[in-house]
Structures are given as structure tokens and as C-alpha cells.
Computed example of a mutant assay.
Amino acid sequence: MIPTLDYAPDALIPNDATFWMPTEDDIPDDEGIGYFRNVWMILNEPEVTTRNVIETESALISLADRLTTSMEEYEALATIIDKGYAGEELSDHLGDSIRSDAPELLGREPDDELPLYDLELGVAGLSYALSTVGAVPVASCRGHEDGWSDRPVVFVALDEQRARWLQPLVGESGCGFHISRNREEFLVIDGPSIRHTSALAQIIVREFGGRRELFDRWLDLAVLDARYG
């Protein structure tokens, strides 16, 4: 099962959006922006990398939908995918299902690379898709009952050109925009479920198609490499 919240996202860009985007001088060498914890920069990711993340994520979402029968089982399996270990003891049903259908999820070593590169299920693909079109994802959460977001969200730094381009795609996917209090410089993209945010990632890559000429401004990664490399 994939949990879905009963609310209608607003696909209109908020009237008070600031459309702030960092410059190269705003990018730190070892952490993210916006004073979030445990984050890092994901900048101008190659489209091939993003497509691989989206494909992996889509398969894992289907796996979670197929193997879990309750919120507790979904949260346990999503935690294994996100972090490489279960947050609590697995039910017999879920443990048997994982060992039968995806035993590799239970056999990871602490230093093994995670399938979504330390991002969470359902928002990893969207974070990478936004990066590929030159936006700057700054924080994400797949939604937790007791977490900092109860719904899937990606906070993103966007200029107006990219925000206007994204708006119909956000609407097509069933996602929406909002602005979070105390983080007004960022737009937040949210969805009723990780299926919606995963669908948006796929739509973004489909519509972008590597056309960098769509947007006037891109962060110059050569500047950052010279500064921090």
C-alpha cells in the first residue's frame, strides 16, 4: 500500500513567491542552503543520472505497494529503502515478503551505497529532476506521521522562468506549490502521495529532454570546482 493524503494540492504559484535562486557565491563547500540539517547540494545533475534515480525509485515504489499491507509495514519498508536498515522489528509477513521478493534490501553492509543516494523514497527522483533543469533542491521528505512534514515535499530554490515552466507540469502530476513559514525564499512542491511526486519527476525529465536553452541562467559548476575542488 502507498499512503495517500486526502487533500487537494494547489498548483498555482503563490502570489508572494520570491523566485530566489542562489549564485555561485551562495553555494557552500560542505552543506546545503537554507539552514536545514543533514543536507547537501545537488546541482545540475546529468540527465542520465536522474533517469536512473527515477527508474530505480519507480521500481521501489511498486515494490512497496506490492509488499506492504499497512502503514506500519509501509513505513518499515520505506525506512529500509531510505536508510539501509529497519527502524523497528519487521512483521513476519513483511520480513518473509522482502526475503522472497527483494532479499538484497536486507543484506546491505553499513558502507554500501543506498539505491536513492541517501534521499527518501518518492522525493529522490523529484529532487534530481529539479536539479537537472537547473533548479536547486534544498530539502526533501517523503512524509511521516511524526516527522517534520506529513506529506511528500521538496523545498526548492527557483527563478521565475523555471517556476512558470514547471507550473503546468506540477498541475498535470496532481502536485502543488506552497511556501513554508520561515522558509519564504523557497517554493515547496508537495503531493498527496509519493506516486504523485514520482510522476512529477518523470514528467519534468520528459518535457525537459536535455534542452538547456529553455532557461537563461545556469549555475557554473566549473566555478565551484575551481573554488572547492
Rank of each mutant, 00 (worst) to 15 (best):
F155C: 11
P192M: 09
E45W: 00
A199R: 15
R162L: 10
W165P: 02
I33G: 05
P168A: 08
H196T: 14
G125T: 05
D111Y: 06
P46T: 07
S62A: 14
I61Y: 04
I61D: 07
D65Y: 10
R142P: 02
G229Q: 04
S193F: 09
S70W: 06
I81P: 03
D112T: 08
R227Q: 07
A11F: 12
T79H: 15
T49V: 14
D150A: 07
V136D: 04
D225F: 12
L63F: 06
I81M: 04
R162Q: 11
L224G: 03
D29E: 15
E47L: 15
C141L: 10
N44C: 11
G229V: 08
H178L: 12
D82R: 06
A102R: 03
L219D: 03
M71R: 11
I42T: 13
D30I: 02
E160W: 05
V123S: 04
E109S: 12
W165T: 09
D101G: 00
Y74F: 15
F186G: 01
P152A: 08
Y74G: 00
V170L: 11
P46V: 09
D26K: 08
F155N: 14
F36M: 05
E55I: 00
I203W: 03
D190C: 13
V153M: 15
D96Q: 11
V154Y: 05
W218N: 09
E31D: 13
E24V: 13
E184H: 06
W40N: 07
S97P: 02
L67N: 03
I189T: 03
A78V: 06
H144Y: 14
I189P: 01
L5K: 12
P115K: 07
Y117L: 14
L90G: 02
L90E: 06
E184K: 12
E89K: 12
H93A: 15
W165I: 06
S193T: 10
R108N: 04
S62G: 07
G107T: 05
A102H: 10
R217S: 10
G210A: 08
I179Q: 02
A163C: 04
D150Q: 10
F208C: 01
L114R: 14
S58R: 13
L119D: 02
S131G: 12
L130H: 01
I204H: 06
R227N: 00
Y74L: 04
E160Y: 07
P110W: 04
I204W: 11
R37P: 00
L158G: 00
Q202E: 15
E109H: 13
P22F: 06
E24S: 13
Y128M: 01
E47T: 14
P46E: 14
W218A: 07
L94Y: 04
G107R: 12
R227A: 14
P103H: 02
H93N: 14
L114P: 05
L126Y: 05
A226P: 02
A163T: 06
I203P: 03
R108E: 07
I81Y: 05
S193A: 08
A199K: 15
A139S: 13
M21C: 04
I203Q: 10
I179E: 00
Y85N: 05
E45Y: 00
V154W: 08
S131Q: 10
I189E: 01
I13W: 09
V53A: 03
T69F: 07
D10Y: 00
S58C: 01
E57F: 02
G171R: 11
W148N: 09
T132L: 02
R99F: 01
L12E: 13
I61W: 02
G210D: 09
